[in-house]
């Protein structure tokens, strides 16, 4: 693929413009926005974790608007059925005859917000997870392609665990990133109030389109990565496994099961995207370190000692980054 320098500059510029545009409607949350964009640019899905009311739905809506892609929202409840997610065949009268017609479910959109995914039953969760992984939906005997670009942003409430169905590790592993949505600061809160409870209207302009997103994805794959940087990324993933000789002490102490190769793929792809967004045409160690947190935090199975010591995944990842030498 031939990439011109002008194209690269344009990409960097337009991504910057998108961030700025999103920033009009979403106050603060710069890292969250950037990471969601990274996931969008690398064909990944995101698990957003935050208390209710932090603007997760608003974020997805805004991204959809700025990138000019179709948006849908699924509110997961315990009684939600898979067909409610994927769609189902309905009997309709067509030309005097009763025929089955597939009615697409809400999953058929470019960007899908799966709200409180942990409230739905595993069966319903799995219906969405097939769409996330395969980018297809199978209903009956037919398989339907989902539109491209396709990204699922699932949300979890960290507080309410009563009556929920936590996603199993195997399912969590399919998410590219797990992003924490934190409570905004006072200043950000003021701005949020200013935007949301006043008559001020925020007009968002579409900056990018779906084809452009696809093009950017191709360009990102061309970004070179040096062997030393690549090796560093892989060392980080290997260092999450306590059974490996030479694993850091923190890994041996708090992790029962390390990250899968999908984590390495996630780090690999998203670091390239980040490098491009930074205006560079090569991946650096900083890129690796930056994407390591969202890529690994949901892929580490912590043991009881971590829970009892109050050790979080981010602290463990920080310890691993400190111990692995370049």
């Amino acid at each position: 693929m031939e990439v011109r320098e002008q194209d690269l500059r344009t990409i960097v510029q337009r991504i910057g413009m998108c961030e700025a545009e999103i920033g009009k409607a979403i106050i603060g949350q710069k890292d969250v926005v950037r990471q969601v964009i990274l996931a969008l640019m690398t064909n990944g899905n995101v698990l957003l974790e935050g208390v209710p009311g932090l603007g997760k739905t608003q974020l997805v809506k805004t991204i959809a608007r700025v990138f000019d892609i179709e948006f849908s929202r699924i509110q997961f409840t315990p009684d939600l059925m898979p067909a409610d997610v994927t769609g189902t065949n309905l009997i309709v009268k067509e030309n005097g005859q009763n025929v089955f017609k597939f009615e697409k479910g809400p999953v058929f959109a470019n960007i899908v917000l799966a709200d409180e995914i942990n409230r739905a039953t595993p069966k319903t969760q799995s219906a969405l997870l097939e769409a996330m992984q395969e980018k297809t939906v199978t209903v009956g005997n037919e398989t339907y392609q989902l539109p491209q670009p396709y990204i699922v942003l699932a949300t979890q409430n960290p507080i309410e665990n009563e009556g929920t169905y936590p996603l199993p590790e195997a399912q969590l592993d399919r998410f590219l990133f797990k992003i924490y949505v934190n409570f905004p600061s006072l200043e950000e809160l003021k701005q949020i109030m200013d935007v949301t409870v006043t008559n001020k209207k925020v007009e968002l302009t579409p900056i990018m389109s779906a084809p452009e997103i696809l093009f950017i994805r191709d360009v990102i794959r061309e970004i070179p990565i040096a062997d030393a940087v690549n090796e560093y990324a892989l060392k980080l993933v290997v260092a999450t496994h306590p059974e490996v000789p030479g694993a850091p002490e923190i890994t041996k102490r708090y992790i029962s099961c390390g990250a899968s190769p999908r984590a390495a793929q996630a780090i690999y792809q998203t670091s390239k995207a980040r490098a491009l967004m930074e205006g560079r045409l090569n991946v650096s160690f900083d890129d690796i370190k930056a994407v390591a947190y969202p890529a690994l935090r949901h892929r580490l199975a912590l043991n009881f000692e971590a829970l009892s010591d109050g050790m979080t995944a981010d602290r463990i990842i920080h310890g691993i980054i400190e111990s692995v030498k370049i």
Binding site: P224, I225, A226, D227, A228, V229, R280, N282, V283, S284, F285, D286
Partner: peptide, 11 residues
Amino acid sequence: LQERVTTAYQN
């Protein structure tokens, strides 16, 4: 230089 030189030398 953020690994520009390393990447450029390698490639």
